[in-house]
Design a protein around this nucleic acid. Structure first.
Lengths: 135, 135
DNA sequence: TTACACCTTGCAGTAGATATAAGGTCAAGG
DNA sequence: CCTTGACCTTATATCTACTGCAAGGTGTAA
């Protein structure tokens, strides 16, 4: 019924350290403890942490997730905030894909450069002709 | 002829702090100083920093760049090392593009979800139906 | 009893910078 | 001569999202 931190971690595929970290930064409430001081998590905690994990998977930062949880605590629907965060993230991802695609082309070109002028022919005024040919 | 850190930074589109940081981690040698202690950079320093910037643009980590510069200092051609680093990076970039593309699809789906069930209809047992629908 | 897995806290480290504080230098204008 | 402002100095903290480690406590099974 009640889980210790290792069990909770395993259940969600997280590191126990990560869960403690989330608690420290206020993303998770302080849980109940056993007499020996072990953290004990209830279903509610499991749900909350699952939510955090999903939100991370959706690309929200921990800061944004904290915001969303704050909405929840105030009894407000965070959905419009979430929608905004997701839209921002989607745009960023789009930009990243564009960047990386250009970058990949450049890397392939550099790799070609490496083949063209073989290694060993170092000139003293150059660090490396491959890098030197970066555009 | 000789540049102060701000001029060097502007010339290369870098932050002066970044240049000091590079010096601190041993990527750049300690430059000459004026009597007042201001750093003075020569053409050689400019070339070296330009190289570092290019290598960063090529996706090498600062650690890898350090390696490459060490080759240079030993009078060896770093090109085969560089070729390896670039190949590794290219593979990684490919993986990232694949990941991000999947992720973008998921974000778009989530955005669609947000439209489907309008905000305001919060149920008490849920944090946010958008996030809850993350796969 | 001893081995072992698990838990605790606290602190340090990662990459690659960027920001801030508190102060020194230098040239121009009033 | 003095001030203003841009620039420089160092040292330290901050950012993100964790991860690792040390030193020790707990709980159970052989």
């Amino acid at each position: 019924m009640k889980l210790r931190i290792g069990e909770l971690a395993k259940k969600l595929g997280l590191n126990a350290q990560t869960i403690r970290y989330y608690e420290r930064i206020g993303l998770l409430p302080e849980p109940e403890r056993t007499e020996a001081g072990y953290r004990l998590y209830r279903d509610e905690d499991l749900r909350r942490l699952k939510f955090v994990k999903n939100a991370r998977n959706a690309g929200l930062t921990l800061g944004e997730i904290k915001e969303v949880l704050a909405f929840h605590e105030r009894g407000e629907a965070p959905c419009s905030y979430v929608t905004g965060a997701i839209a921002r993230r989607a745009e960023e991802v789009d930009r990243q894909i564009t960047e990386l695609t250009k970058f990949k082309k450049e890397l392939d070109r550099l790799h070609e450069q490496a083949r063209v002028r073989p290694a060993g022919e170092a000139k003293p005024d150059r660090y490396c002709h491959i890098i030197e040919s970066v555009r």
